[in-house]
Computed example of a mutant assay.
Amino acid sequence: MIWPFSQPKEPTVAAYLASKPSQRREAKEIRELPIVLLDAETTGFKIGVDRLLTLGIIRVQAQQILVESARSWTVYQEKPILNEAVKVHGILPSDTNNGRPEKEVMLEFLSELQDAIIVGHHIGFDTAVLNEASKRHFRISIKNRVVDTAHLAMQELTAFKRTGYVNQRPPTLEELCTHLKMPILERHTALGDAYTTGLLFLNLCARISRRLGRPVQLRDLPR
């Protein structure tokens, strides 16, 4: 008998787990590394309870957002509900009824991810929800290095510097875009937020480069 925990991984999952970044990656320039902008919309805001509704990714290469690389998925959920989250993202049960099975979406997502750096805004929640989905279907966790543009902004922008106040709130995407006079594209859609986050990320990296007098390396970014 083969016990469930000893069964071979799906090829896509095995390939994802086998992809290993260079041990010297932290010293590499950002423009040399694979970057995936990521945003997810979910059924709510509780980790371990709420589920994935939509997922969007866009690649960044050589400090350029590759619009043609954009991919998005709508995820079928058996029991979608109308709650406060729907008022934010506007994704209705009628939308998710026509979505793809979560396992299929996660397999395609992992095949796109490999060893890329994940960049997102308030990305901790998104990756936690994706972790729950990965564990549910494949018994693995997302292993990629993650960069949160909210924390990056608090590192680089004087107006949002950490104060030491225990309840200091990280800036929202709207606050940062307003401060930097940047456009916001299709807010609260997975691809729109991913693209806007990419613009913010490149803006902040340019500021770091000017401050340091050299190209930005991965180790210059907060974990």
Rank of each mutant, 00 (worst) to 15 (best):
V86R: 11
V105F: 03
I142K: 14
D115A: 06
T74D: 00
Y76F: 09
L107R: 14
L82A: 01
H121W: 07
S111V: 02
S72A: 12
K79W: 08
V129Q: 08
N131C: 09
I142F: 15
V146C: 14
R100T: 05
E84S: 11
H121A: 08
N131A: 10
E108I: 02
V88I: 15
I118S: 11
N131R: 12
R136D: 01
E132P: 00
F125W: 05
V129K: 11
K87L: 10
F125P: 01
D95T: 01
T74Y: 04
F138C: 05
N83V: 02
Y76Q: 05
H121N: 05
R139H: 08
L82D: 02
H122E: 09
L107S: 05
L92K: 03
P80I: 02
E84I: 01
N83Y: 11
L152R: 10
N98E: 04
V147M: 15
V129A: 10
H89R: 03
G99D: 02
K135E: 07
H137F: 12
H121M: 09
A116L: 13
L107V: 04
G120W: 11
A128D: 12
V75L: 04
L113E: 07
T74C: 12
P93V: 00
H122F: 15
H151Q: 14
N83L: 10
V147P: 13
R100H: 02
Q77K: 10
E104Q: 08
K103L: 00
I123Y: 07
G124H: 15
L113K: 13
I81W: 11
S141G: 06
R145N: 11
P93G: 02
K143I: 01
T127N: 08
P93E: 03
K143Q: 15
P101A: 00
S94K: 04
V88N: 06
E102C: 04
E84V: 02
L110K: 10
A153Q: 11
H151V: 14
T96F: 04
I140E: 01
D95M: 03
L152G: 09
K143L: 09
E112P: 07
K143D: 09
R100Q: 07
N97L: 00
E108P: 09
A85H: 06
L110T: 08
E84Y: 07
K103V: 04
V119Q: 06
E84M: 10
L130M: 11
V75Q: 03
G90T: 04
H121S: 04
L82M: 05
A153K: 13
H137D: 01
R139E: 06
L107W: 06
T74S: 06
